[in-house]
Simulated assay, not measured.
Amino acid sequence: MLMGNKTPLWERPAVLVGLMVGVLALGVAIGMALGLWSGKSSKPVPGAEQAPAPVIAATAPPPPAASAAPDEDEGGPLLAPPPPRPDPGSSEALEFGHASDVVSLAPAPPPPPIPEVKLPPAGAAVWLKNALPTPKTGGRPVIAIVIDDLGIDRRRSERMAQLKGPLTLSYMTYADDVARQAHDARVRGHELMVHVPMQPQSRSYDPGPEVLEVGLSADEIRRRLDWGLSRFDGYVGINNHMGSRFTSDAAGMRVVMGELRRRGLAFIDSVTSERTVGAETARHYGVPFAARHVFLDNDQGVAHVRAQLAKTEAYARKHGAAIAIGHPHDGTIEALAGWLPGLEARGFVLVPVSTVVRMGNGQ
């Protein structure tokens, strides 16, 4: 039998088509099987609990911790004062927002170095000549009450001068008839000071005429100070009316201290600013000085003044001496009238401010 014209199987069309269809069917079958198997494996297992998605809660940052109130007895910063109260009878009270009602003995930061200047010759100690005699203290703590802003309100100034002394009464330079008022107060046994207007921080406060201002020439500062000091006599020195701006200015205060040194007068810093350079400038110029410790009437109510007088007693008992400054307000007059008679029985001695200056306890 002859085999010459037979075609091989793999070259026949029907066989090739059949093979291709078979391979395609096998691939479809394998794909379906894999899909069924994967679907079954993704179903949750009965009884199993899916973990919830994490929730991130938005929380506010904790508030800053409140700082503890400073303790005056531990030498902390100055106590925060009540807000200033407008009062036409005492323009200095308007500045009480710039200073504390009680001055702490916390050590102050070192002052900037004072440039070397040729000090004027020291004059005769007029402050000692005009000072009241120092009362016998017997070792008891002493308190000096300084009342300033006097002379403008004549009626209240007179009531204050009628209180039992010795008080230290500081009269405004520009008050009418101030020489007679000051003379009458001295006859009643009170010590005298000149209340010199000095520039405050705020321009909305009017310290009065002939105010000592930052930026004035030295000659103009001396002229204005000379005018104030010429209004009456018999005083031991000056204290500042307002002055939170001027007493912080070293250049202006050097002119004032040079003049006080030449005239032999003392300086009492009312401390209307925590930045005052009064103490270090006075010390450098050899001017006798002291600084107030308590403000009596930044709140003019009788109860508040009585509380401030109690603070004054506590300060004097701890440190040996205290200087409190007040003003001719009705509440202050009433509180002092009730407080003064029993002071000695409570173990204190009322003294003029010159006594505290002599003791060196007013710094």
Rank of each mutant, 00 (worst) to 15 (best):
115 P>L: 14
74 E>T: 12
78 L>F: 11
43 K>D: 02
338 G>T: 05
351 V>Y: 03
339 W>Y: 15
104 S>M: 04
55 V>K: 08
265 L>W: 03
21 V>S: 14
275 R>F: 14
232 F>S: 03
273 S>R: 06
131 A>M: 11
80 A>C: 04
351 V>M: 09
85 R>D: 00
249 D>C: 12
9 L>Q: 12
134 T>I: 05
122 A>N: 06
362 G>S: 08
103 V>N: 13
241 H>T: 06
48 A>K: 15
356 V>C: 09
347 G>T: 02
156 R>M: 11
112 P>N: 09
50 Q>Y: 11
28 V>P: 00
86 P>L: 10
206 D>K: 06
113 P>Y: 01
102 V>L: 15
11 E>T: 01
106 A>T: 09
168 T>N: 07
275 R>W: 15
264 G>E: 05
74 E>F: 02
246 F>M: 15
67 S>D: 06
172 M>Y: 02
342 G>C: 00
46 P>G: 05
240 N>T: 10
360 G>F: 06
36 L>C: 02
152 I>G: 01
154 R>S: 12
80 A>S: 15
24 L>C: 04
278 G>K: 09
269 D>P: 05
18 G>V: 14
250 A>K: 12
328 P>R: 09
90 S>H: 06
279 A>E: 13
46 P>H: 04
89 G>Q: 11
300 Q>H: 07
185 A>R: 02
114 I>S: 07
89 G>C: 07
354 S>H: 06
292 R>Q: 02
123 G>E: 04
249 D>Q: 10
303 A>K: 01
350 L>W: 02
126 V>F: 06
334 E>C: 07
182 A>V: 04
252 G>Q: 09
22 G>Q: 10
218 A>F: 08
290 A>V: 08
91 S>M: 15
11 E>Y: 10
259 E>K: 04
175 A>M: 09
60 A>Y: 01
186 R>Q: 12
268 I>R: 04
344 E>Y: 00
46 P>R: 12
44 P>G: 07
361 N>H: 15
134 T>Q: 07
325 I>W: 04
314 A>R: 15
223 R>F: 10
191 E>C: 05
151 G>M: 13
321 A>Q: 03
340 L>C: 02
158 E>V: 10
267 F>E: 02
155 R>N: 04
153 D>F: 11
308 Q>A: 08
92 E>R: 03
301 G>S: 15
105 L>D: 08
61 P>N: 03
266 A>K: 11
124 A>K: 14
278 G>H: 07
73 D>T: 13
61 P>V: 05
16 L>N: 02
303 A>N: 07
50 Q>F: 13
256 V>C: 05
48 A>F: 15
97 G>S: 01
173 T>K: 10
254 R>C: 08
294 V>I: 15
